[in-house]
């Protein structure tokens, strides 16, 4: 029996404008899983991910990472936890005007001193690792290219390399393929699968397309209106569950 890497208990999030985004969400993530979160836009998926690495502060409830309570930690301890959790985003969020190499190296910021990083001094070891990761995501030869000149799929792969640069135990992926075309989506998902299987990184991923979910997820949870309404294997999501999660009007679209 694998151990739980993440334990989320009764998580609530109310935004200052009164939006109640999460209403008591509880679930565990075991080490090595590829757990996918599904749900309509506005169901609280992004908020959930951002409460885990504390980009947003939860209103109540608890988040345990590696058995340590991280719901209210601050400062250096919080930065340590964040450094063990990589994150990739729908809009890639790379640093504009900087090279692929520089972008990947920002994954080491938490262990590089403030002054060293400002003057761009990274250890040889880190540079070698960055080089290897750029090769891993299939972008060798692009190290000196400006990241914002690459295609969407390539940018997302740079983002994956940046996240891996942190040596993460877990990777949060917030709609990683929502702004990519179908072919590129599969390529990015393949890389995530590779990271999950070969490097043993636990993945927690928000997705829209059920076809992708069935293909890549080892387990699924579904959110609706900030509540967890489904937890189980991707194969068990039948027509009825689909209508419960996405509403009566919904029709499934596939991505091949």
């Amino acid at each position: 029996m694998a151990t739980n890497i993440l334990e989320v208990k009764d998580l609530q999030k109310v935004y200052p404008n009164g939006t109640h985004a999460l209403r008591g969400v509880s679930f565990d993530v075991t080490e090595g899983e590829f757990l996918v979160v599904i749900g309509l836009s506005g169901s609280g998926k992004s908020t959930l991910l951002r409460c885990i690495n504390r980009l947003h502060d939860p209103s109540s409830g608890s988040v345990k990472f590696n058995k340590d309570e991280i719901t209210t930690i601050k400062g250096q301890p919080l930065r340590n936890v964040r450094s063990k959790i990589g994150m990739i985003f729908q809009h890639f969020n790379l640093i504009p005007r900087k090279t692929v190499m520089t972008n990947v190296l920002t994954g080491t910021l938490s262990k590089t001193g403030v002054f060293k990083s400002i003057f761009g001094i990274y250890s040889e070891e880190d540079k070698k690792k960055a080089q290897e990761l750029i090769e891993l995501v299939g972008l060798s030869g692009k190290e000196r290219h400006r990241a914002d000149n690459l295609s969407g799929g390539q940018q997302q792969r740079v983002a994956i390399a940046r996240a891996l640069m942190q040596n993460p135990k877990m990777l949060l992926a917030d709609e990683p393929v929502a702004s990519l075309d179908p072919a590129t989506s599969h390529s990015v998902m393949q890389y995530l699968k590779k990271v999950n299987e070969e490097l043993g990184v636990t993945i927690l991923c928000n997705l829209h397309f059920l076809s992708l979910v069935r293909q890549y997820a080892t387990r699924v949870i579904a959110l609706k209106g900030g509540e967890l309404i489904y937890e189980g294997s991707p194969k068990e999501i039948d027509e009825n569950w689909f209508k419960t999660i996405y509403g009566e009007e919904a029709v499934e679209v596939t991505i091949d």
Binding site: H91, T106, V114, S117, I118, R162
Partner: peptide, 16 residues
């Protein structure tokens, strides 16, 4: 806000 979010998520210091 994207790059700010991404940098925060790596565990970088606020100055970084």
């Amino acid at each position: 806000d994207g790059p700010i979010e991404a940098m925060t998520a790596t565990g970088a210091h606020p100055i970084q």
